[in-house]
Design a binder for these strands. Structure first.
Lengths: 195, 195
DNA sequence: ATTTAAAAGTAAACACTGTTCAATTAATGA
DNA sequence: TCATTAATTGAACAGTGTTTACTTTTAAAT
C-alpha cells in the first residue's frame, strides 16, 4: 500500500482528533479551522477529508473525545467523593465545563444536518455519561423508588445543564445568580425530596 | 445628502433587521449570510457595514428583535392565562422556542468577543424578559416571601432553559424525557414548594 | 526483478464567508 | 452653478469548507 509516513491509518486518525481537540479547546467552535489542524500535524487538508469524509464526522470525533474526558473526570471525582455523592457529581459537571469551556461548549455548538441521526458510537458515549447520572440518582432515592431514576435523571441533567450553559456562555446575563453550581444542586435536592 | 432611495437611515436600519430576522428564522445562525440579507433588500454588502459597523452589531439587533417578540408572546399568553399563571409562562417559553426554533437558538449561538460587554439597550431587553419571570414567581410565592423571587427566578429560568435547549437542539438526545415542558414545570413547582 | 494495482497524499480550483475602502453617485446649501 | 457632504457601491483581501484530478509511494503479483 501507499503510505509514505510512519503512521498507520488509525494513528493518523488519532493524531487529527487530538490536534483537533487541542485547537477546539484553544479557539472554540466558531474559530475552529480544519485547514489549521491539517497544517499543525503536517498534512494537507485533503488528507483530513480522506480520513473523515466530512467536517461533521471530524466534529463528532472531537466531541466524542470531549465526552470521554468528561466521563473520566466524573468517575474520578466520584471515586474521591465523600458522603454527598450527588453534590460531588454536580460540582464535577461544572468544573469540567469551566476548565474546558470551549471544548465543552462545542458539544452543543455543533449540530448535525437536520434529520441526520447521530452515529451509534457517539450515542453510546452520551449514554455512558447519562448512565452515571442515573446510577447516582437511583442511589440517592429511597429504596424501592429507584426505578424513578430513569425518568428523573434527564430532567435533573437538563436543570444542571441550564445553570451551567447560561453561566458559561453569558448570553442571558443572569445577575442575581451568584453561585450557579450551588443553585443547581439545590434544585436537584428539591426534586429528590419530592420523590 | 446623497441618499438615492426613499428610505431614511432609520427605515433602512429597520429593513435590514427585519430581513435579517426573517433569514435567521429560515436558515438559522450557522447558515446566516449578511451578503444574502443585503441582496434581498436590494442593497450592497457595504451598506450593511455602514449602517451597523460590524456583524456583531447586526446580530445584536436581530436577536434584540427576537427578544421583543418573545416578551410580547409571553405577555400575550399571560393575559389569556387561567388560574395557573406559572404553568402558562413555562408553556409559553417552550411554545415560542419551538415555533421560532432558529431565531430562538441564535440568542445563544451568537456570542460577543470575550470581554466585550453587551450594549445597554440589549441588556434592557433581557431584563424585560427576566422581570416578567420575577413578577410571576413573586406572585406565586407565599406573601412575605416574595422578595426571594429575585434570587429564585434566575435559577428557575436556567432550569426551564436547560429542558428547552437540550430538547430543541437535540445534542444530548435525552431519551426517557417524554414531555420536557411538563418536566420543567414540575421542577419549578418543587422549588416553589420548598420556599 | 519488473510490472501492476491500489492506497496515500497533495494542492489547485470552486464557491462561499466577513471585512475594508477608494471611488462614485446624488442631494443639499451657498 | 458649484462645492460640500452624506450615501452607496463593488472590487479586493484573507479566510472558510469541499471536491477532485493528479502524483507519489508501497505492497503484491507476475
Amino acid at each position: 500500500m501507499g503510505r509514505r509516513s510512519d503512521h498507520t491509518r488509525e494513528q493518523l486518525r488519532a493524531m487529527i482528533v487530538v490536534e483537533g481537540h487541542r485547537q477546539m479547546a484553544e479557539v472554540g467552535f466558531f474559530h475552529f479551522s480544519a485547514r489549521e489542524v491539517a497544517k499543525r500535524i503536517g498534512y494537507s487538508i485533503g488528507t483530513l477529508y480522506n480520513v473523515f469524509g466530512s467536517l461533521d464526522q471530524l466534529m463528532l470525533a472531537i466531541n466524542g473525545m470531549t465526552l470521554d474526558l468528561w466521563r473520566d473526570y466524573l468517575e474520578l471525582r466520584l471515586e474521591a467523593a465523600g458522603a454527598d455523592r450527588l453534590k460531588a457529581l454536580v460540582e464535577a459537571y461544572f468544573e469540567f465545563a469551566i476548565v474546558n469551556r470551549h471544548a465543552w461548549a462545542a458539544l452543543y455548538d455543533h449540530r448535525l444536518p437536520e434529520g441526520e441521526p447521530m452515529p451509534e458510537y457517539y450515542e453510546a458515549k452520551i449514554a455512558a455519561l447519562t448512565d452515571i447520572v442515573v446510577a447516582e440518582i437511583a442511589a440517592a432515592l429511597p429504596p424501592g423508588k429507584a426505578d424513578a431514576a430513569v425518568r428523573l435523571a434527564p430532567s435533573l441533567l437538563a436543570s444542571v445543564h441550564g445553570h451551567c450553559a447560561l453561566t458559561l456562555t453569558g448570553t442571558l446575563s443572569l445577575l442575581h445568580l451568584e453561585d450557579p453550581c450551588a443553585a443547581a444542586y439545590a434544585r436537584v435536592r428539591e426534586a429528590l425530596a419530592e420523590a
